[in-house]
Design a protein around this nucleic acid. Structure first.
Lengths: 329, 329
DNA sequence: ATGAAAGCGCTAACAT
DNA sequence: ATGTTAGCGCTTTCAT
């Protein structure tokens, strides 16, 4: 139960203390194979008396299992390593992996050069990979040897299961809400053009606008608040009659609101603004932000769990996006 | 350079391909010991021809190094495992550890029961521990065997080096700013009472107020925006003449602003509000939040680096807190 | 049901 | 300078 031995106990210590062979001790500790009730009892007792904790590294070595799950984030720059969203994925993964004795590592995959994946595949200490900001090129670059132990938060492929929020439906709900509340000249601030999963809402937007006979007004964004601010100015300049702006991230939406304010435009009086994600602060600002909530933690957890399990997951797992109507739209 | 072998190459493969012994190959790969220029050349060539990547788990096993750095967060509930701040620490740590082949794990240490630390100490796959939300009790519970490979983000002890922002100076700067801009009835919303590092700003507050002959007005907080909102109402009720509120986290500050707004109080006209942390959104809201910026990423990076290095670090490393004056105060 | 023995991939004395 | 040898802590046939 206790015993903070200076030198951590090994399985050998346990076996010796229990008066059995290492093999027997291993069987009962790992819960595999047979052992007499008597032996089992003695091993368990010895183990927690010595404060024994199995060494996952040694275990992984012999089983060929690996001790690290790596979160590989594609991006144009290494700044992605400081991204809050990525950190949230890493945190969730770390939480899921800890009980299994698996640690999480964070790698940057330069956009044009997905060779980093080969390294990861060749590293026997890597038990699996969770892709973030996945692109088609990245998917194509996934080595065969990673099949079955890789997952994508974002788009997927035949070999790489996808875990993602239902962006299309989510964007649709936001847009429909804007329409239902009387907005007819709706602009959209997008995510980075190279990021497929951020294009989906754009497609939904274009589709819906066309269908409703409304003008399509898209300005490029990059998820940041600063860009949102600039995007608002641009929107105001190009389309003075704009009455709603849908930003593809809450950060951007807050930037848009700031930009609108700079331009003397009232929100939601003159222009409604909606975000996407529902970050914790979304409900605290003035005006409180209308947005769609996304279970990022659950998505990351599911992806990491699937990779950890090592068996092929469903090709696509979609998580619901839920409209949250507050004051800004 | 390439070669996505189906079975990842081992050191043996490299040695064989290079026509040398495993030891020689090991020496040149690990960069330790001697090797003739010729041998070195051949090993290097063979290695990258085979796409060889060393197995950190095997390496750790023989060197007794460990393959996981664990971030251990003390808290009253497991909810801490989802905390954005903790995730930020984990993310930063993961980034630092990745090149060393070390993964990061996230553990919750229940407040009253720090025995989890013994487990971590007994786990030979754990190369070190970074404590978050450190308390005195936690510090006392750090097993001797962890000494030299543990660090705290927060308070430290003789055995556990501390990496923290200079809370006292930071709070002082904020408070002085409030005073300099004419505020005289300043209230403070604290962090959780059990968290030592959140008490430091409170002490600074009390000290400064006393020194200036100003009343001390403290209301308990817990870092959340919801609590900030309630705290604002409470402050308004207890001290109708309050003219400034200093919240110990930006989230809380936004809650305070919301609460003030609920009460029909203008910010900063009637009451100035200052936060603490400078989260990304702090500059985007209306009013933009006056706060103090804290290099959380750098702190986490320093702590993880120290643990990874394994040699005793300076007892206390203080990071500067920088006042950021915006609109709210 | 249990033990003996081999080996996962690597490093580090110790020889040579 | 290089190879030989012995493990690191564990699981897993294979005998018994």
């Amino acid at each position: 139960m206790t015993a903070a031995a200076h030198r951590p106990a090994t399985l050998d210590d346990v076996a010796r203390a229990a008066g059995v062979s290492r093999s027997t001790a291993s069987r009962v500790i790992a819960g595999t194979g047979f052992a007499s009730p008597d032996a089992r009892e003695r091993v368990v007792t010895a183990a927690d008396q010595l404060g024994y904790v199995p060494n996952p590294a040694a275990r992984a070595l012999v089983r060929g299992g690996g001790v690290r799950l790596v979160v590989a984030a594609a991006a144009t720059s290494a700044a992605v390593l400081d991204d809050p969203y990525v950190h949230r994925v890493v945190g969730s993964a770390a939480r899921v992996c800890a009980p299994a004795g698996v640690g999480v590592a964070l790698h940057w995959l330069p956009l044009g050069d997905p060779r980093g994946l080969d390294q990861l595949a060749a590293d026997r200490s890597v038990c699996g990979v969770v892709l973030v900001n996945t692109t088609e090129a990245l998917l194509d670059a996934v080595p065969r040897s990673l099949h079955g132990r890789v997952a994508s938060i974002g788009i997927g492929s035949a070999e790489v299961p996808s875990f993602d929020v239902d962006n299309t439906a989510g964007a649709g709900a936001v847009l429909r809400h804007l329409y239902a509340t009387g907005r007819r000249r709706i602009a959209m601030v997008t995510g980075p053009a190279w990021l497929p999963c951020s294009q989906r809402p754009v497609q939904a937007y274009r589709h819906l606008m066309r269908q409703a006979g409304l003008p399509e007004r898209v300005v490029d964004g990059d998820f940041t608040a600063a860009r949102g601010r600039a995007a608002a100015e641009e929107a105001l300049r190009r389309w003075p009659d704009v009455d709603a702006i849908f930003a593809i991230s809450d950060e951007t939406a807050f930037g848009v609101i700031a930009g609108l304010r700079d331009g003397g435009v009232r929100v939601p009086g003159d222009v409604a603004v909606a975000g996407f994600d529902d970050i914790p602060l979304a409900g605290m600002t003035a005006p409180a932000l209308t947005t769609a909530s996304h279970p990022v933690g659950r998505i990351a957890t599911a992806a990491a769990t699937a990779v950890l399990a090592g068996r092929p997951a469903a090709p696509v797992t979609l998580f619901p996006s839920a409209l949250v109507t507050r004051d800004s739209a």
